[in-house]
Amino acid sequence: MEDRNLAMNQMSLAVAHVSKQFDRRWVFREISFSLSGGESIAITGKNGSGKSTLVKILCGVLSATTGNVRLSLGGKELTGGQVRHHIGLVSPYLQLYDEFSGAENLDLLSRIRAGGDTHVPRTEEVLKLVGLWERRRDYVRTYSSGMKQRLKYAFALLHRPFALLLDEPTSNLDAEGISIVKGVIEEQKRSGILIVATNNDDEASWCSQRVHLGG
């Protein structure tokens, strides 16, 4: 755990001149910022300003039209395969498998990601954290939308990511869920980096910096 925190302190995320074009229309242009351990940033902007698009680019699931995103450890840039181990995402676009239970989802996804590398399964820990331990054996298709959102948090935190990206962090959550999220955020800000995409000023104020899309 200590090692991990130490490693995280040497990590940084640099976003340089990122622009995205969709069908000849620039969604946003020339976004640049950089974050190192303990820092956080809120991405704000109205509907359609490209918040989710930027989040997808930061996660590496979408490529930018120009510019680049670099995740580095001690000044050395991480490759695509390594980046996957350091990014956690909660997003309305992200779905888990309906035909598997909550615990099965986490197990199979961490098996795919780790590829048999020695890892301690944290399934129990994260499921208890988000309050789904009792329902772990139920199929995800029977979950309510709030429970699905909680499960996404469990999935995002499973591998102790250095960078946690939250797109609409509190959608579908009840008061208890929101307080869980706040706890997660406090923990994340201690050593990793946090990126929140939101329309809500309250949620944006969780972060120390802000980038506004769409003028």
Binding site: V61, R84, I87, L89, L94, Q95, L96, S110, I112, G115
Partner: peptide, 16 residues
């Protein structure tokens, strides 16, 4: 259709 493409992209390389 289920929106799980992104989930897979997050955990696995394209070759896998």
């Amino acid at each position: 259709e289920r929106g799980t493409t992104m989930t897979l992209q997050l955990v696995a390389s394209p070759a896998v």
